[in-house]
């Protein structure tokens, strides 16, 4: 199968799960009389639809990436983390999960395109929400290392065996790859996130944790313009 065909299959797979859920919830809605239960079902339909729309937006953006010109600018990572968490809070609340943001005291600024970077982080956090253990937190942290600004998203999903982890690591950003331990995904979201990172002269990496879960890390060029931040600009 060529790249185009492979991409279509991955996109279809990725959208099938939420669409099936929306269909099921709407069938349930038709049979439910209790107002409070109906309101909860409607909320779940809305959150599931919004999640699918985010994927469709990112797919469109990724497809246009090569021909598009986008502005690179200093972006304060802590502000971006809070923005993403605010937006995904209704979903995390509905899934019974919580966020922990760990950012250092000194402001960390990356050079990137604000919209792409936001989509990238949204993609990583959304991915974590899907696989995190119920009740566990998702940790979002930033640090500077070897002149790179790093933003990490750690989930507490199931343990991944070494062979599968190696496959994931090797394919990260090269192609969509279904992950057996993470069955709701075709890996397309990670492929898109890697494309966004590469477009901003960065890249993604992944590490696994012995007691379960993964950390995905976006490595981006760090901005030296700290005065820009202290001057009060975003």
């Amino acid at each position: 199968m060529d790249d185009f065909g492979g991409g279509l299959v991955a996109a279809a797979h990725e959208l099938k799960t939420p669409l099936t859920l929306v269909r099921q919830l709407s069938l349930q809605l038709a049979e439910t009389k209790d107002d409070a239960a109906r309101a909860e079902i409607a909320r779940r339909i809305r959150l599931t639809s919004e999640r699918s729309l985010r994927l469709v937006d990112n797919l469109t953006r990724a497809a246009r990436l090569e021909s598009a010109m986008f502005e690179m600018e200093p972006v304060l990572l802590s502000g971006l983390c809070h923005e993403v968490v605010d937006e995904l809070s209704p979903l995390s609340l509905a899934l019974g999960q919580e966020f922990q943001i760990k950012v250092g005291k000194s402001p960390l600024v990356a050079v990137g395109n604000r919209d792409l970077l936001r989509s990238l982080v949204m993609g990583l956090v959304d991915n974590a929400l899907q696989y995190n253990a119920p009740g566990a937190s998702i940790e979002i942290s930033t640090r500077i290392r070897r002149n790179e600004a790093e933003l990490a998203v750690r989930d507490h999903g199931s343990t991944m065996d070494l062979a599968e982890f190696r496959r994931l690591k090797e394919s990260l950003g090269l192609r969509a790859m279904p992950i057996a331990a993470r069955p709701l995904s075709s890996g397309l979201g990670l492929l898109i996130a890697q494309k966004f990172a590469l477009a901003m002269n960065g890249h993604l990496s992944v590490e696994r944790h012995r007691h379960g879960g993964l950390t995905f890390r976006a490595h981006l060029p760090a901005s030296q313009q700290m005065s820009f931040v202290s001057a009060g600009q975003p």
């Binding site: 799960t17 099936t20 859920l21 099921q24 919830l25 069938l27 349930q28 049979e31 439910t32 239960a37 079902i41 779940r44 599931t48 899934l95 119920p134 069955p183 709701l184």
Partner: peptide, 24 residues
């Protein structure tokens, strides 16, 4: 069923007629 929302929804559909439990 490991998709909690899908499982809960199935459960609601079946509960009037059956005794239902979910294993996620």
């Amino acid at each position: 069923e490991d998709d909690k929302w899908f499982a809960d929804s199935l459960c609601a559909n079946l509960q009037p007629k059956f005794d239902v439990r979910v294993c996620y």
